[in-house]
Nucleic acid binder design. Structure first.
Lengths: 262, 262
DNA sequence: GAGTGGTCTAGACCACTGT
DNA sequence: CAGTGGTCTAGACCACTCC
């Protein structure tokens, strides 16, 4: 009944689940497996494709097929926003100690590696509409990569936008060498007199672009979670927007919604 | 440079994007395509697999390969919770008119098809911990399927749990024929004297189980978004939990986080 | 029954990895 | 260089759909 490639996939899956093949182990070569199961190599490869799409194995050209190691789950909350706001007016010494990502993940600043780069761009139609500025207005585009010190792949790719005219009175906000900025974006905005009143987040999932799959080290078949965050000041003006790309296989997001009393 | 199957995939992708192949059109048969591109059938099939994993085509055994129709995006917000709470004490006539899903999607009750079934279960360890009851306690398990009247696949699979002891004083709450219940779960809980104080939602993404892929009509390679919702009453007691499975390719979720003033 | 996609074979050659 | 996975061929046979 069951087709051959499914039987092979089932058998290998069972071996992995049972621990006969441990995380990081190399599987027998495809030609060896074909011999063992008395099937052709393409049939074995079809079985391996199934396991790969389930995230159980990793195919490395010229090296072999390996049992995938489980990766650390990265957590993200919406309480981070109020937490960051509360710290935005604290003294630098306190802000230096920890940031919103550490708040979410429960790790210390030494466990995370952080890369930032800034450049200036002109607003396209989407960004112009969000910020209610004319298309072509000057924006600051900031890209961030955050990863665990012990792993090679980042767990978030962030592109953040600010309206240049709103922040240029503090030249440090245009200088990427000031990153990581203690206290984060909310403290940066505080230095130019902006207080946030509300944050809207839109969450979707989609297949990764080839570049995203490469950078996040995603197995084929894994989706990315895409989060678009817009920060509004206390006058309901959009002052910051971020596109956040998160690996679907290792991200958990938590949202708390308080309700008003009757 | 570029390998054959990628060239074929690129060419077909371009045809679809350019509209030469419209949504719902059948592609030429695999043997015809092999002839056209002067490649073997397995190579053509490899190209089609790429397009399938991108959600661009749908393979129907015995019928052909078809350009996939874009499906309606389903929206979900967290403002639905306050909205539903505000309506929970309204008269039945008002609650009948519309529900939280209509609030999210902007549609009327006539555009949506709704299925519900109830059964009684015993709490497993996970549920016992969430509700702070002994394992084995009686729970009401309620499953819901919601779809657009014009489409065949539901856009949400919901499994919701209540502690039987908390709701059994109103026998209607154990009766699935009372669904769809005007005013939703928050009105149901109101009838037994429960007011919600907070809702926590946890969001992750993962590959679908075969059953989920089948029911949601997901193309291979598409993830599902999994949302676990826990509703707490005003004394911080968990009173309801839902597991919500959403198709990753057609779901948008919106979360608003208000911030306290400085 | 004709036409379609699904599975499978047996083997060739190429590209990548590590020694 | 040997060994590995990646691509590709040419064809066989099966399962499904629709007429």
């Amino acid at each position: 009944m069951a087709v051959a490639y499914e039987q092979i996939a089932d058998d290998l899956r069972r071996s992995i689940r049972a621990g006969e093949l441990a995380a990081g182990d190399r599987l027998a070569s495809e030609s060896k497996l074909a011999e063992q199961y008395r099937k052709s190599v393409p049939t074995v490869r079809q079985a391996l494709r199934v396991l790969q799409s389930e995230g159980l194995i990793e195919k490395l050209h010229g090296r072999g097929n390996f049992v995938r190691r489980p990766r650390t789950v990265a957590k993200r909350t919406n309480s981070r926003h109020q937490w960051e706001k509360d710290r935005a007016r604290e003294p630098r010494a306190k802000r230096l100690k920890t940031g919103a990502t550490e708040h979410d993940t429960g790790l210390g600043v030494q466990d995370l590696v952080f890369l930032a780069s800034y450049r200036e761009i002109k607003a396209d139609d989407r960004l112009a509409e969000i910020f209610c500025v004319p298309a072509g207005s000057a924006l600051v585009e900031r890209t961030y990569r955050t990863r665990y010190a012990a792993e090679s792949a980042p767990f978030t790719l962030v592109t953040s936008y600010l309206v240049r005219a709103l922040v240029e009175e503090n030249p440090d906000l245009l200088d990427e060498t000031k990153e990581p900025w203690p206290g984060g974006t909310q403290n940066q905005l505080f230095t130019v007199g902006i207080e946030l009143g509300r944050i809207d987040e839109k969450v979707t999932a989609r297949p990764p672009s080839p570049e995203e799959a490469d950078e996040l080290e995603l197995p084929p078949g894994t989706s990315v979670i895409v989060l678009q965050k817009i920060s509004y000041d206390i006058n309901d003006r959009a002052v910051e927007m971020s596109d956040v790309v998160l690996p679907g296989d290792r991200t958990e997001m938590y949202f708390t919604t308080p309700l008003e009393r009757w």
